[in-house]
Amino acid sequence: MPAEPDHDDHDGHDHGGHGHGHVHPVNFDPTAAEPDPFDAAPEGGRACRIGIGGPVGSGKTALTAALCRTLGEELNLAVVTNDIYTTEDADYLRKAGVLDPSRIEAVQTGACPHTAIRDDITANLDAVDELEERFPGLDLVIIESGGDNLTAVFSRGLVDSQVFVVDVAGGDKVPRKGGPGVTTADLLVINKIDIAHLVGADMDVMTSDAHRMRGELPVITQSLVDTPGAPAVSDWVRSLLPITTA
């Protein structure tokens, strides 16, 4: 191939363009063994990853912001957002001032928010890796999904535990409808209970349906207007830390 102006080194001893900027020493001996130039993966103690999912408008971002506000002082934490409009949630969180903007990564989901958290978690794993490299010793990474339907759950390859958020305005039949989000999430949050009376939602129906659908799995009802710090969910998160997996 003819000479290329941006690439005058074909032997690869300074191929800074290939993404990690290290320089190889010149060595023309094809049998020479070189030490691995890359740092070993950090030992044990990785961050706990919690997924927050649920339908559009149920309050996932508000809950994420509340957790950042409450837990940010005591934990080394970071956030990955998957809003379908790419930077919408990240901008909200940055403007809310609850977390250093460099601790928030936004990923693009290719118009398929459930795919990005369940079937092909690559973009989210990349974002988590990026944050863990940037902030060694992270205790907690919160991964907020884009708003999706009742069947959307996080892959266990991406998160250790997951929260599914529904709200009273979505209708008090939502818990009864079930779906993997409602029935299998490690925690179900019924949000915006302060407006239940305005939208005609029967809280007794919602909570009893939720418990019936979920068996022993916990349900928390909350209003971020009445309790902006999401104290019950924060306590649940604290109970997960630190993770003990290898």
């Binding site: 191939m1 290329e4 941006d6 690439h7 080194d9 074909h10 032997d11 690869g12 191929h15 363009g17 290939h18 190889h24 060595n27 094809p30 049998t31 070189e34």
Partner: peptide, 18 residues
């Protein structure tokens, strides 16, 4: 191939991707 070959191949792709 030797390990270095992969870096060469990789950077040749860089060179063809403006």
């Amino acid at each position: 191939v030797t390990r270095r070959h992969w870096a060469v191949l990789d950077s040749e792709f860089d060179a063809r991707t403006p």
